[in-house]
Structures are given as C-alpha cells and as structure tokens.
Computed example of a mutant assay.
Amino acid sequence: MIAPISIPSPDYGWRTIEIPVPWGIIPIQTYALCILAGIILAVIITSRRLTKRGAEPGVVLDIALWAVPLGIIGARLYHVLTHPADYFAGQEWWKVFAIWEGGNAIYGALIGGAIGVIIGCRFTGLRFWSFADALAPALLVAQAVGRLGNWFNHELFGAPTDLPWGLEIEFDNPAWPQGLAEGTLFHPTFLYELVWNLLGAAVIVLLERRINLRWGKAFAIYLIWYGLGRSFFESIRVDPSEMFLGIRVNVWTSFAAIVLGIVLYLVQRRRHTGDEPSPYVPGREWKGPDAEVDSDEIESDSDSLDDGVEGENEPQGETAATSPSRTTS
C-alpha cells in the first residue's frame, strides 16, 4: 500500500507525446524533450555569460554545432560500453544505435561534448577554458532539467525508503527489484540530483562574485560539485550497472571527476592569478560594431597624405586589438 505522502510517478501516457501533422502522428519521447529543453537553456545561459565577458553574441551556436552531436554520440557510446550485457549478449547488433529506446550517460556526454567544444573553439578563436567557465553553471541547469526525463520514464530510482518523499513505482515495472513487496517506495534519485545540480549552479554564480573563477576554475568547481553528488546518488540506485571492485563504474567515474576538478583548480590558481584579458586567444579577438576600422585601411589612407610626416596619424592607426572601444572581459 502506498504511503499517504509520497511522490507519484507520471502516468505512462506522458512518456510519449503525440504531435499531429498533416500526414499522421509523430510520437516524441518526453525524455527527449527534457534533454532538448536542457540543451536550449544551457545555450542561452552560456551565451549570455560569454557575451558579458566580451565574446561575440551568438558564437555559442557555432560551438554547439560540434558539442551537441558529439555529446550525444559520447553519451550513447559510454552507456553501451558500461552496459555490455544489454547489447552484446545475443541482442541484435543494431540495438547499439537504437538511442530512441533510451540509454545515455552524462559522463559520456561530457567527454564527447568536450571534444566538440575543443573543435568549436579552434574555429571561433575562443579560449577553451573561457567557454568551459561560462558553461559550468549552465551545464548543471541542463542536467537538472534532463533528470525530469527519468521521472517520466519511471527509471533510475534509488533503494527502498520509508521517507515521506518516497517515489511510487508500479509493481510490474521491469526494473522492480525482486523480493520487494508491492507498494514499496524508493528514493527519488532524479529529484535529489535535480536539486543538487540547481544548488550547484547557484553556488558557482555566487562564488564568482567573491573569488576569481576564470581560467577553468569555475569548470573545476563544476567537476567537484557534480562528482560529489553523483557519487552518492549513483551508489543508492538499484538499476543494473557494471561493477569494479564492488563499486559501480559511474561511482568510480565520479571519483575521477572530483580528483580532476581539484587538480585543475589548484593548477590554474597557481598558473593564473589574474583575470583573463579576453575570452579569445591572442589575434582572434572579436571586433564589435563600435570597434575602430582595420589598421590596413588606415595605412592605405596614410599613404595618400601629402605631408609625408611619419607617425603623425598614429592615434588613428590603433588596431582593434588595442582599441579602448573593444569589448573585453
């Protein structure tokens, strides 16, 4: 019997939203919509943060074109490799690519997305760490929204609990742990991580007002914060997972994220004590609409002067890289 106070799971009908079109019905997974909403929020937040630091408005989209697809590929690849029995034990080979059936991993998305960001930054001239710092709180917001998809899918819940906020799961759910009585409540790990991620985004933003979190330090805080929370939430989940030395693989990955974040923060704090001069690498700075004309145009104008006095027009020859009107961080 379900406790008087508990968190109900959404009706199964909400797992798929049917959108009518002239030629029929297009079913869309609610989980996919949650992921898409998270991506859109991350792009908006990151764009605003980068623009305030002197980046070209909309440049985030150029990087997202690389980061999002590679993040999706990485998420799927990581999930398949950490759940080999689900795909390589007599299953059809094409199931590996059946991403619409579920099966994505945030750590794989981070790895694939990071590769995409590196490529995108090379094309746009942005510093990788500048982008990563702007992305850090946005990434936590996106992950929080994405966890709602697990709630709609009735999946990835935690161990049994008698707490008043226990999650209701139907008895015929394929993931129902054997031996438990019908009506058992479970830890709502989706909600724990959602709240933890939103709190982490707020912590990063507040810390930025007090201490210097540029040069990758904000992203380091993200790795530490998310790793700490995920290592706990992962340890109380009951869904099948590959184990190493009696510990779930994702817990080990969380530990690695924490260590990486600590090392990154300490190294960057020692190497970079000041603020970033610009979110762009030297020579690739964005020239805003109020920037001065190009130096080569000025030089051509100077060549046409009759007085031939060298250096007389030097103030006009100020380049976009040194112009005081150029927006910087």
Rank of each mutant, 00 (worst) to 15 (best):
P289C: 08
E292G: 06
E314Y: 13
G261L: 10
I236Y: 11
V293F: 08
I298L: 15
E318R: 00
D296T: 04
V238W: 06
E242K: 07
E310H: 05
G261T: 08
E312Y: 11
R271K: 07
Y265F: 15
W252C: 13
L260F: 15
A320K: 09
D275S: 07
G317M: 09
E297V: 15
P240T: 00
E318V: 02
T253G: 06
R237Y: 09
E276M: 12
S304L: 02
G288A: 00
L305M: 13
K287W: 06
D294M: 08
L245K: 07
P277N: 06
D294A: 15
R237K: 14
E292Q: 10
Y280F: 09
G246S: 08
G311E: 04
P240K: 00
D275R: 05
E234V: 04
D301A: 14
L245E: 07
V293Y: 09
I236M: 14
R269W: 07
S235F: 05
S295I: 00
S254W: 08
G261S: 12
S235C: 08
S278N: 09
P282R: 04
V238A: 06
K287N: 10
R271H: 00
S304T: 00
V238F: 03
E299R: 13
T273V: 08
S235V: 07
V267N: 03
A291G: 05
S300L: 07
A256E: 13
S302F: 14
N313Q: 10
V309R: 09
W252R: 12
V281R: 14
E276D: 14
D306L: 12
E312W: 13
T253H: 04
E297F: 12
G274W: 04
L266W: 08
G246L: 05
G288S: 01
S300V: 05
F244R: 03
D290K: 11
Q268T: 13
W286S: 04
E318P: 02
R248L: 11
E314F: 14
I298G: 10
L264G: 03
V251W: 05
V309Y: 15
V281K: 14
S302K: 10
P282T: 04
D296N: 03
S254Q: 06
D294I: 05
M243F: 04
E310G: 04
G308H: 12
S278V: 01
V263W: 08
I298E: 12
I247V: 15
R248S: 11
A320R: 12
E312T: 13
F244N: 00
A256Q: 12
E285M: 01
W286N: 06
E299K: 12
V259E: 15
Q268A: 14
L245H: 11
P289T: 07
I247N: 15
P282G: 02
M243V: 05
G261K: 09
